[in-house]
Design a protein around this nucleic acid. Sequence first.
DNA 1: GCGCCGAATGTCAATAGTGACAAAAGACCG
DNA 2: CGGTCTTTTGTCACTATTGACATTCGGCGC
Lengths: 196, 196
Amino acid sequence: MPRAPQTVRSERTREALRRAALVRFLAQGVEQTSAEQIAADAGVSLRTFYRHFNSKHDLLFADYDAGLQWFRKALADRPAGEPLVESVQAAIFAFPYDVEAVTQIARLRSGELDPTRIVQHMREVQSDFADAVLDHVGRRHPDADELAVTVTARCVAAAVFAGMEVWMRQDDRNLADLATLCRDALESVTAGLPVS
Amino acid sequence: MPRAPQTVRSERTREALRRAALVRFLAQGVEQTSAEQIAADAGVSLRTFYRHFNSKHDLLFADYDAGLQWFRKALADRPAGEPLVESVQAAIFAFPYDVEAVTQIARLRSGELDPTRIVQHMREVQSDFADAVLDHVGRRHPDADELAVTVTARCVAAAVFAGMEVWMRQDDRNLADLATLCRDALESVTAGLPVS
DNA sequence: GCGCCGAATGTCAATAGTGACAAAAGACCG
DNA sequence: CGGTCTTTTGTCACTATTGACATTCGGCGC
């Protein structure tokens, strides 16, 4: 039973854990911080910690969840007739990034975390992202063929993350490039596979 | 340091662990079997168990690794000029399935395992599968644009797994249907996104 | 305020998974 | 065979994670 409900009380606890963890992580590193320390700092028992987060490392990715929710909503709010690819583009970049916080966490992630974990998380995010697109497409085209809808959603997600993947391999990274890569990726797959 | 090397000795140990685990899993269920029991049955220490398998649940997916290796080789062995989609199709179904064993393990997986784990594993397999396709495409078209190659590989993988996904949701499942779904998925994405 | 109910937390006791270092098993060479 | 280097295991200790069950906290109706 990983994720806990959302009463006022539990939300306060969760936030306390988040803060405590961030402080420790920044001060002494992720792997050098034990879940027990975090729980103690937040003034709760270790067990309670695990009622709010699936794992210690989950804390470093907590923000992605919020982003996903945002994306779902942004997608649903796009005008009805808009081409899918446009909607996705728009929804992705509608998120109000808190650059400071994101940067800080990103540094922790890339600096101290086992690359394996990051990859694993990327996969999870892509999968959730595709689910969101799938819901969206399904809602807009209730009559469409199930395979067609599924293929479309998964490929849109695949394209976006392919863009991200290429971007990550670049030396000089900036947001504008990322947007361009994602757009190009989406456009090319819309027209069919670019390489055969 | 998860995966261990491959000397004669370690391979015997690994095999012993596999057998011991299968017996226990079948007899008393996956969650009711502890890693310690498996190690004891195989006559090794618990620590050694974890030197051969990342986790207890890994044992249930050990066969997929072999399948992936096979796929890579089958893909590489396809004639040079063949269209990508054809190569992938052919390579997927070239694997010599041991129906008995696969069925037995599949029953364990779907019966007792937390669905979350299965989904997670599916994602991992898809990701590895895409990596294989990526390597293949990259090898065949060394001069092609990196983004184009990446998009193509990820989308081919996405299409195949979309087919699988739809297949899994069906009541009546048979191999022929799966093949058809995968082919349809690949063909549709080759021509461009089926839904917009 | 009192008693009741469900949500949130605490406690206890396992099992899961890993890092560090020592010991044993093989392979190889002279 | 003895010496030596590499691979594989064992041992120990510690953190991570989870299930089961007891306890406490906050509303809610009386």
